[in-house]
């Protein structure tokens, strides 16, 4: 017994002393190297956003987004003040996957857009680059896409990413003073100024198969005291596909926008294109170029139908409320 206690004590003291020594050595090394590591890391981040914010002096660590084509967000500062956000985004277009860096100013206007890479250098891409030069020098608006000038789909893809970046910046700006509810609803009502705490709802089922979707919470959304619509928290799980969303319905019961909070889609052994939902269907229904019920013949019909069923249920719920209450909470 005494021997065991002695052994245990020796073990603890020996290992304790070695660990303390190790900690001291690592601590000193870390203190010496951390300024250099930070400088390298900052240089890398400055290089990443240099194309859209050439005057940036400090760039935050990237925040992961992975939604609506946006991948990461950097907070960009100069002279000690926030000057905007740089968003990296990636979206499949007609034939190309376009990777962009979008610079959004602190007043939520577009600073610059840069194509960081593309899977091919097609004529579409060249046309998009020419159009982008106009967007960047201020002669063309990012949502002004001339028909028949070539590269329409690629330009639309970039335009959707820019809009998504602006919406995300608006939704996530304001610091801690903005409530979590308001941050959430701004994903579908970017200009919202008020939101209530949310009311639990139980809406589920719908087509094509029962219990493939459900809506769990409804928020009344206001802009400057006026109710502009409702935001719903919902989720889908058709055929092992999973996603959680915020669905925005205007006060008159029509669809506003949908925002994918999380998406976990697989390709069902090649039968299904998992990028079609976040890459085409959602951006197109959000931009108004596709009606939410126009999902037959797409590359992920059942998932799109489920999303549409969820949207229709939210629309019906808003209509059942009897229209807008006129004043947001």
């Amino acid at each position: 017994m005494k021997e065991n206690v002695k052994k245990g004590l020796i073990t603890t003291l020996t290992l304790g002393a070695i660990v303390l020594g190790a900690g001291a050595i690592i601590g000193v090394t870390s203190a010496i190297t951390s300024p250099f590591v930070y400088a390298h890391s900052l240089a890398g981040r400055l290089e990443a956003v240099n194309g859209v914010f050439p005057n940036a002096e400090d760039v935050s660590e990237p925040e992961e987004i992975n939604s609506n084509g946006l991948v990461e967000r950097y907070e960009v500062s100069a002279g000690g003040e926030l000057i905007g956000w740089a968003y990296s985004g990636s979206q499949k277009s007609q034939t190309d996957t376009v990777d962009v860096m979008v610079g959004i100013n602190a007043d939520f206007t577009l600073e610059r857009v840069e194509i960081t890479s593309s899977s091919t250098n097609s004529a579409y891409m060249d046309a998009a680059r020419d159009w982008l030069a106009g967007v960047n020098n201020g002669t063309t608006s990012y949502d002004d896409i001339p028909v028949g000038a070539g590269g329409t789909k690629t330009k639309q893809t970039i335009s959707i990413l820019v809009q998504a970046a602006i919406d995300h910046a608006k939704a996530n700006a304001g610091g801690d003073a903005v409530s979590a509810e308001l941050r959430l609803v701004r994903n579908v009502f970017p200009d919202a100024t008020e939101s209530d705490q949310g009311t639990a709802v139980e809406l589920s089922g719908g087509t094509p198969q029962a219990n493939y979707w459900e809506l769990t919470k409804r928020y009344e959304v206001g802009e400057n005291g006026e109710t502009v619509g409702y935001a719903y928290e919902g989720s889908i799980n058709p055929m092992s596909q999973q996603g959680s969303f915020v669905v925005g319905i205007k006060a008159d019961g029509t669809f506003s926008r949908i925002y994918a909070v999380t998406l976990s889609l697989d390709d069902h052994d090649g039968l299904y294109n998992p990028s079609w939902i976040p890459g085409t269907y959602i951006p197109e229904i959000n931009s108004g170029t596709r009606n939410p019920d126009d999902c037959i013949g797409g590359e992920a019909t059942i998932t799109a139908e489920t999303i549409n069923a969820m949207i229709e249920a939210a629309e019906a719920d808003v209509l059942s409320l009897g229209g807008s209450s006129g004043e947001a909470a």
């Binding site: 050595i25 690592i26 090394t29 870390s30 010496i32 190297t33 951390s34 250099f36 590591v37 390298h40």
Partner: peptide, 8 residues
């Protein structure tokens, strides 16, 4: 230690 030095 070597990792930290290499990173820096």
């Amino acid at each position: 230690v070597v990792k930290l030095l290499a990173e820096a």
